[in-house]
Design a protein around this nucleic acid. Structure first.
Lengths: 175, 175
DNA sequence: GACAACCTACCTACTGATAGGTAAGTTATA
DNA sequence: TATAACTTACCTATCAGTAGGTAGGTTGTC
């Protein structure tokens, strides 16, 4: 793993725990074994790093999701695949969704970062809209918004109350 | 309004925009017209201020909600009253729910603050459980979690995409 | 020799917090 | 009623620590 990748990985963990303000160039540099000034070589400003982080997160999230049409064709429910990805983000990583946290503090974010967060949700909405349409939903756009909302909200509640069973209860509602 | 109240008011605005890290004693002091050192007179530490803020927020939220049994008795749907309070937090204030944002960054918060955020959600869950039970719901506890989740999530999405119509679409699902 | 990937050595701005002081008001005691 | 003791609500000055960022130098690889 390159230093640049290591920086992004360290930053992702910190942001998913405490938001955009929860990481510093110094901390990141210490964790990957370089000096803080060198972080600026890879990412000129903190906003650049934040934007790259959200961009990468969105890409790997979408890649992990796959194609909703293909999922449906293979006999699986794409909505369950979707909620399973949220579940593993919460249970396996024991952390919030990166863009969920950043989205909540959207109004205090540098514009480059906010743009990437918007991209995350727009892509998620498009995916879910397609998925609900495949399931024969009469209002797939509305269902798409309801699905992301309830999953992001359930993550937030589970984190707040430090009990992932809240998330599990909510995902049963989805079935 | 006392200086102490003014400090809390200024802090609430900042936290609802960018989280716990989005306010400093100096900024708050400037806004209310005292020196930053004097803020420590009212709130010994930043964590004390954060906890007081969440505590006050919870109390006024619950007070604004009223009694779900009485609401039902008066012929209104308590769940609509509940979602209306979230709506005004988002539309009127144009800000996130204080405890929603703090809850998302829960793992990076001082314990005193986290405790108050937990209190917010536990009280909300209790209210909603009673409300859903009044409505004849067969699984009021589960419905309660689903209701807060979807509303907090919808706020988050609306903030992220800077478009409150997402919230409106989601609340229609609730009916 | 060119470029990538660092480094040292800074800078300015700001953070929460503390020490010690002051003026005005309240309360208790003789 | 006078005075001492104490409280409230601030103040100035300063602290060590951390923030993001910059200029310019070094090292290793193609």
């Amino acid at each position: 793993m390159s230093k640049k990748e290591a920086l992004l990985k360290a930053a992702e963990s910190k942001v998913r725990i405490g938001g955009y303000g929860n990481f510093s160039f110094r901390e990141l540099a210490n964790e990957v074994g370089i000096k803080s000034a060198s972080v600026h070589y890879h990412f000129p400003t903190k906003a650049d790093l934040g934007a790259a982080l959200a961009h990468q997160y969105t890409n790997s999230f979408l890649a992990a999701l796959g194609d909703p049409v293909a999922i449906k064709a293979s006999g699986k429910n794409p909505i369950e695949v979707y909620s399973q990805l949220f579940r593993s983000a919460l249970i396996t990583d024991n952390k919030m969704c990166l863009c969920g946290l950043l989205g909540a503090e959207s109004d205090s974010l540098p514009e480059q970062v906010r743009t990437e967060v918007k991209r995350f949700f727009n892509q998620n909405l498009a995916w879910l809209c397609s998925a609900h349409a495949e399931n024969g939903d009469k209002n797939p756009a509305q269902s798409a918004i309801a699905t992301v909302s309830i999953l992001e909200g359930a993550m937030m509640i589970s984190k707040s109350l430090d009990d992932n069973s809240y998330f599990e209860q909510v995902t049963q509602t989805l079935k």
